[in-house]
Design a protein around this nucleic acid. Structure first.
Lengths: 104, 104
DNA sequence: CCGCATCCTAGACGATACTG
DNA sequence: CAGTATCGTCTAGGATGCGG
């Protein structure tokens, strides 16, 4: 882990370089979302991976988890400032993919 | 594989979202490099992963492999146009990592 | 509604040794 | 110098089912 922290590129990729993390962050760019809603937007993700992904993002300080003490349970996720600062990168990744897909 | 190609974000991450790919691409931004030189720049990479990574990047059309028929063997790698188009993203990822590392 | 626990598989990655 | 082959480990990720 910490052995790669000298390298900024690896540091960044360690935070967002998994299958689902970019998607989760991307869908939160327009504002916080309730857990179920967010999960439904991410086509194909399993329940386990959703929880795990969002938990890691929380530990890395990219998203906040807000729990409302109501019945039935209500949980919302939103980006932190650090998470929001990834917006240009996420949009670039998305845009680059769009362009690259055109010329296939 | 192809099941994720609808999603631009996943498409992009599938091309550069591994441990070593961003590093390899990054070190080629300033021009082509001989195999051994390139590998030496990537601290910690094993021989196997270097070959495998560079081969996948070649198959994905991000780098070109130039073989010179001399003794001893000489091989150079350089970015394709598609590979070069990743430059803004790679620099962003690097820059974001630098900033994030400052505030730890 | 939310997310935890468990079991399972595929592939990413590393170490080492070997060929032209 | 460049690349291959083999073996081993570790973790990402998926499927299913339970609990507050």
């Amino acid at each position: 882990m910490s052995e790669f922290n000298y390298c900024p590129l690896n540091y960044t990729m360690n935070l967002i370089g998994t299958k689902w993390k970019p998607l989760v962050l991307f869908h939160l760019l327009d504002g916080g979302l309730r857990s179920g809603i967010l999960q439904k937007k991410i086509i194909g993700i399993s329940n386990k991976m959703f929880t795990q992904t969002v938990r890691e993002l929380e530990n890395d300080g990219l998203v906040v988890r807000n729990v409302f003490p109501v019945v039935p349970p209500k949980v919302e996720y939103e980006l932190t400032a650090k998470g929001k600062s990834l917006e240009p990168i996420l949009r670039s990744l998305d845009q680059w993919g769009i362009e690259a897909l055109k010329s296939e």
